[in-house]
């Protein structure tokens, strides 16, 4: 229908304008938080992509770390230019995920969860143990930032959070578009089939293991990409940044938002970050962050197991059919 189409386009344009304008109404420290938020959106969305096949991993943040470490090392040691190093980092994360898929996809469900945790911890301990080239417990420092761009009058310094925010935004939007297209393709439908009826899918000739591996590799590529975005902005990484505690936050975002729709995890990470940075920082409750995450996690599993996304359609219907969601209702 042309009317919904117009609504969609205007909704998308409004969203784009809001995203472009957003950093200019924020303070400097809030702009930095915004950069991390965009990076975390990519991380949690790549996590959801793996969850499409029904497997929940506890090693996903380590895959982010693999990207960050690989990218930092190739730019520091081998002198790769930063954009190329970023791509290399993400590709290394994908390759590591492919190698790990051989032992890990002998397991399913709970065993996969524990196995992915163990594999991730082994990688993290290797970073800790081998000072060369991983820098040991203190990690790597002085990682190159994106080089400045000078195009005549236009000068872009990526040390500035606003500039880096725009850069991340472009990378993340392109990545999300790719993930969205894959999810809506035959491949994505096959993931669905594997999630809900894996034996049936296998019995009609679907290579379930192959598709699971594909999901893991793609998810890890984008997790690695989010890691490289992080590493070249902050300039320092260490093994603890990618520990299982961080993984718990990603899990919380995914569960609070819900994983059935494309927008669910984005809602989760945006709302929880806003809650954390705006409300708790103002109230001086930052120390209690894990406590509040714990309570939120339990409350959602008990009272709203399908996440915030499950109440969004109801809210929109109550609002007199005005579709503010840009028409993206998910699956």
């Amino acid at each position: 229908m042309p009317e919904t189409r117009a609504l969609r386009i205007s909704g998308a344009l409004a969203l784009a304008a809001a995203l472009v304008a957003l950093p200019h109404v924020l303070s400097f420290s809030q702009q930095e938080i915004l950069v991390f938020l965009v990076i975390n959106v990519l991380l949690v969305m790549s996590y959801r992509f793996l969850a499409l096949t029904g497997e929940w991993s506890l090693g996903h943040v380590v895959m982010m770390g693999v990207g960050a470490y690989a990218s930092a090392i190739v730019s520091k040691r081998l002198g790769f230019p930063v954009p190329l190093a970023m791509f290399t980092g993400a590709a290394v994360a994908a390759v590591v995920a492919w190698l790990l898929s051989f032992p890990l996809f002998r397991m399913k469900g709970f065993y996969f969860l524990i196995g992915s945790f163990a594999a991730g911890e082994v990688i993290r301990l290797l970073w800790k143990r081998f000072r060369d080239p991983f820098g040991g417990p203190k990690g790597l420092k002085r990682i190159d930032e994106l080089p400045d761009i000078e195009l005549g009058a236009l000068q872009i310094d990526f040390f500035d959070p606003v500039a880096y925010y725009y850069f991340c935004l472009i990378v993340v939007v392109v990545s999300l578009w790719f993930l969205f297209r894959v999810e809506r393709s035959r491949v994505g439908l096959t993931f669905h089939a594997i999630h809900w009826r894996d034996n049936l899918a296998a019995s009609v000739g679907v290579d379930t293991r192959g598709y699971r591996t594909l999901a893991l590799v793609i998810a890890s590529f984008f997790a690695g990409l989010s890691g490289t975005l992080f590493a070249h902005y902050v300039g320092a990484i260490n093994p603890n940044r990618f520990s299982v505690e961080e993984m718990v936050y990603v899990l919380t975002w995914a569960i609070v938002g819900g994983t059935a729709t494309f927008y669910g995890p984005i809602l989760g990470v945006v709302l929880l970050t806003a809650l954390n940075e705006v409300v708790f920082r103002e109230l001086g409750l930052e120390q209690a962050r894990p406590l509040i995450y714990g309570v939120v996690l339990i409350a959602f599993v008990v009272f709203l197991p399908r996440g915030i996304e499950s109440v969004v359609p109801r809210l929109l219907r109550v609002g007199g059919g005005l579709s503010l969601s840009g028409g993206r209702r998910g699956t």
Partner: peptide, 19 residues
């Protein structure tokens, strides 16, 4: 669900000890 709830409990008990 049980696993996620236990992770939530873990966070709560850790923060209570910290506080």
């Amino acid at each position: 669900g049980g696993l996620v709830v236990s992770i939530g409990l873990l966070l709560i008990l850790q923060s209570l000890a910290t506080l």
